[in-house]
Design a protein around this nucleic acid. Sequence first.
DNA 1: CGATCTGTTGACGGCAGTCAAGTCAAGTGG
DNA 2: CCACTTGACTTGACTGCCGTCAACAGATCG
Lengths: 242, 242
Amino acid sequence: MRILSQEAYKASELGRCLTCIIKEKGLCNALTNEQLLRFKQIARKRVYEAGDIILYGEEKVSFVAGVVSGIVKMSKILIDGRQQIIGLLFPSDNLGRVFGQKNLYFAEAATKVELCCFEQTGFEEMLEDFPELKQRLLLQTLDDLDAAREWMTLLGRKTAKEKVASFFLLIARRTSIEKKAHQSYDIFEMNLKRCEIGDYLGLTYETVCRQIRWLTENDITEWPSKRSFRVKDIHKLIEIAK
Amino acid sequence: MRILSQEAYKASELGRCLTCIIKEKGLCNALTNEQLLRFKQIARKRVYEAGDIILYGEEKVSFVAGVVSGIVKMSKILIDGRQQIIGLLFPSDNLGRVFGQKNLYFAEAATKVELCCFEQTGFEEMLEDFPELKQRLLLQTLDDLDAAREWMTLLGRKTAKEKVASFFLLIARRTSIEKKAHQSYDIFEMNLKRCEIGDYLGLTYETVCRQIRWLTENDITEWPSKRSFRVKDIHKLIEIAK
DNA sequence: CGATCTGTTGACGGCAGTCAAGTCAAGTGG
DNA sequence: CCACTTGACTTGACTGCCGTCAACAGATCG
């Protein structure tokens, strides 16, 4: 019965990893319990409050992290202050640049955020040792690339109205995947400021306001509060988003 | 001397792989000669003329390919015809979506193009067998992601003038890396139409024309012909590009 | 030679940016 | 408790950049 007790020991050691809410979708799902144990040794949980800066651009990177809860916004900032959000990170998304010398992005907590952080070199060593982990990272990077290119199309070719509609569709899809209870009439929490939406869409916040007003006046969305919305007509929204 | 003759045999079999111009920078550089032999077996060269369509969007993918010569433009097209080029592929860049069910992009030869094509499943099997190959693919995908995000900033936040200046810098850098003989006063071939530049920058071709004129009137670029330019003041160009 | 494609230039208009005033909610301190 | 501040958001008026439309110039080609 020696093996069993060892298994039990491991399970107790793994602790919160086994009940982690992103276990199914995160990178760590590629690992066996045994491997996870090693993974946990280089992991550290960190909590950030809304507005906290997680990474400044251009510094040397020291860690890679998975988002456990909350939303992280990653952006690039031009010298004169113009900002472009190049990605929103939701739970199970990853942050940081593996195999890179430099972090290229500015990362900020948009809401309260919990990260599961891995020390950089330890993480890279594990990538070499566990092919499943590297495979998963590759697949995720490929998906990220597809998403980035989709967004390029939005930024380069869509009108303000189409951009804002596309954005609400994105939020509805991402947050409903999380809740696994999507219906067209759900209320979605929108944890971003108007100006952050603008920075994501390549618009000013005034323009974002006006488009939201237009969508509301045309019975497509409804705003119980300034930070939450309900989609009244999903088909029209999809049609407008292009 | 049996081993030696076997080596010689392999070398002769490898043939054009050994003298391939993208050997140093392409994915295949991760492989030993022995591995390369297997790689070559699933490889097939294809040639496209300027304007040929390489991939339509949304179909099932059947191959992955490296660009040997020429320029491939990858784009997304909205239902009403608006187009956004989401990437230009230069020699040693790769085309196609590994581990993906669907190809998401429209790919077209912008110039005469030579591709080194690999049958999809054979390529994916090799990725599993040769970790170095997968590592190289991962690194390249990460770089592609960085480039895409850089371009998102351009599309979302830069003015027409800044966009056009950034574009010429990109071309100058990419083509001079190729030639390995970069000087500020080099002449660069610009194998894209004005409207393709527009589709890449999220502008109309008329606006591209006007910005080119402005750069020329201000002694920053010079156009010996419609498709080639010389950078007269690289510092000003960098400054304008932001 | 006309046909076609690509590029240039001008005139005009509209979408989205800029500037500015004002509302609202939450927080702070006397 | 109220006065005050602050930050987020809204709305209006105006402007300007860039898109649209159109005419035309050159180049290439059968």
